[in-house]
Design a protein around this nucleic acid. Sequence first.
DNA 1: CTCATGACACTTC
DNA 2: AGAAGTGCCATGA
Length: 104
Amino acid sequence: MENPADKRQRIWQTLAAVPRGRVVTYGQLATLAGLPGHARYVGTCLKQLPPGSTLPWHRVINAAGAISFAEQTPNHQRQRSLLEAEGIRLQAGRIDLKRYRWAP
DNA sequence: CTCATGACACTTC
DNA sequence: AGAAGTGCCATGA
């Protein structure tokens, strides 16, 4: 992992391994990708994620079990729709991590 | 090279 | 249980 591209690649690869109907937190994804402590970096990578990508970016949520986007933003709506489409239920705008969190 | 920012996590009040 | 404060790391100006 000499170049930044490799780190992103790792995060994306790990994200691609998240099964449908499950979610992971930023910190967890970073740790699984072999980059502990890079929770924020995960968000940066997802932001840099090219449109049209098939990666399940919507399965990444914060430690509170909530979507990191503001409720009014289109992104938030999109993510929520995608999650619900996978059978993930949101309670009061939050996701039950106990139930939907993915453990490798 | 230093400063400020961010799709966050963790500990503590 | 919920809110506030502190820490961490990569990026871009």
